[in-house]
Design a protein around this nucleic acid. Structure first.
Lengths: 150, 150
DNA sequence: CGTTGTTTGTTGCGCTTGCAACTTTATGTA
DNA sequence: TACATAAAGTTGCAAGCGCAACAAACAACG
């Protein structure tokens, strides 16, 4: 009988790793009162100086629009993001970081980089490059082609 | 100002890949009326001929016991799993697949293997080996050492 | 025996999530 | 103009989740 070892089954392993990774990072976000989808909004807006629409954030983060909508609401409550009304298309609501939001972003980025480094610390430099490349291949074959704009 | 590209941030990429992987597989489980945690129970019990306790399933799958408890209840409703009472330790409830459960397992395994192959189809054979190895290193450094029993 | 602490498994509860329906605005067609 | 269609965001709702509290069964010790 053909049996399958769950612990060597790639989807399971990948899922477990991603969960652990995320939980490790969640502790860092939590210090600023935000969670994962909120961090994603912050990260997307933080990459640009000009305002971006919620739809743009949805595309970049590949996160459902209802989640983004709620994340944005919370970030506005926290004073990290502001809505800019009065654009060409009045359906779109342009978003950008406030001064506090930019400060939070600037504070968070090095912390997250350090966490990433720690998580990848078991890799040699060559393995890090391999890892990046393999992730790229997987993304490619899953149709998650990376948006250079993001 | 130090900026971080979300799309090249490993935790984000890993999370997205794991989500996509899982969703692709969820379609396969759904045909049998089960979801991811239920599949994990099925997979764990299917690996062994002798019954195992719920605690054993919890350890192998690294899934919260409340989730496992509910998954088991549903699998019993579906007639795929049965409880064996009357063991030495009456707190433990030994679990094993029913005939239907074994048939479902036998039917599901090749489907899932095919799905895994499809997902890894972008890799060369050498890259597949690299991928396995790199996952192992990450698991090691995250303390998710693989239980050989699983 | 009794008492205290530990382990197994279940369940109540609050929170988060994604889906779908909805509002509002823009676009296309006549 | 009128009308249908599409897109951007929001929100109601039901399902899923983990946490913590819990009951039941064991273990250790006096």
């Amino acid at each position: 009988m053909d049996r399958l070892n769950l612990l060597s089954f790639s989807p399971f392993r990948l899922n477990r790793l991603a969960t652990e990774f995320s939980q490790a990072l969640a502790a860092d976000y939590a210090r600023f009162g935000i969670d994962i989808p909120e961090w994603r909004v912050l990260a997307t807006l933080g990459q640009h100086d000009d305002p971006r629409s919620a739809a743009y954030v949805v595309r970049c983060t590949r996160t459902h629009k209802s989640r983004i909508s709620r994340a944005v609401s919370h970030l506005i409550e926290l004073g990290l993001v502001e809505r800019l009304e009065g654009g060409d298309d009045r359906r779109e609501i342009m978003l950008r970081l406030t001064a506090t939001g930019r400060a939070t972003y600037a504070e968070l980025v090095p912390i997250l980089r350090a966490r990433e480094d720690a998580l990848l610390s078991g890799f040699s430099e060559a393995q890090k490059r391999d890892f990046e490349r393999l992730l790229g291949v997987l993304e490619e074959s899953l149709g998650l082609v990376r948006d250079r704009e993001g």
